[in-house]
Design a protein around this nucleic acid. Structure first.
Length: 186
DNA sequence: TGCCGGATCCTG
DNA sequence: AGGATCCGGCAA
């Protein structure tokens, strides 16, 4: 059994809902100044393409969304409300404008502070706009198969904070690990 | 070029 | 419930 295997490009180049669910339980790893910060992904949201009105990519290809429309397996990091960063991983073949938002993680090693929320997890892991467009197949910032995968049940709910998106506001595209204590909200 | 509002979080 | 505090997208 291989341990700590970095997820390959092909993992990301699949339908976004599938990638979102498969990201649960995986390890997000960021190495900075020789220190490894590692956390288990426990809550995500899928933003499935240009037709998804809750997705930034629904604005089309712009300076901001170009990363979402780019190669899968890259990080899309943006600043929200002028003070918090949110991290997504780009999914599907290039050109689809789809991504998965990381909403909550569970500390595994080298991570301190609250990680229950997209802005908080970025702060705890030292992720900011400098990492926008960063390749997640790099050696200091990547997502890996956990050493030992435990079984869990996936809960599906509507996404948080997208009431403006009309029909898409209620789409069941938020996924989290049932019973996990690091989830951002009920 | 100006304005509106946001995939959030904290405090009261 | 309200404020903090940038910046992207769109109207003008």
């Amino acid at each position: 059994m291989k341990r700590n295997t970095k997820l390959p490009r092909a993992f990301y180049a699949r339908p976004t809902e599938q990638v979102a669910k498969d990201l649960l339980g995986k390890h997000l790893v960021h190495v900075a100044d020789g220190v490894e910060r590692r956390a288990r992904i426990v809550e995500v949201e899928a933003y499935i393409g240009a037709h998804d009105l809750a997705s930034h990519s629904s604005k089309g290809v712009t300076a901001r969304t170009s990363v979402m429309y780019g190669q899968p397996g890259h990080a899309y990091v943006y600043l929200i409300y002028g003070m918090h960063h949110c991290m997504n991983v780009v999914t599907e073949p290039e050109g689809n404008g789809a991504a998965v938002l990381l909403r909550a993680v569970e500390p595994v090693a080298g991570v301190e502070g609250n990680t229950r929320g997209p802005g908080l997890l970025c702060r705890a892991l030292g992720i900011d706009k400098r990492f926008n467009g960063h390749d997640l197949l790099s050696k200091d910032f990547y997502i890996a198969e956990p050493p030992s995968g435990e079984r869990f049940t996936i809960v599906t709910r509507p996404r948080i904070g997208v009431a403006y998106a009309g029909e898409w506001a209620d789409a069941p595209l938020r996924f989290y690990i049932e019973g996990n204590s690091w989830i951002s909200k009920k």
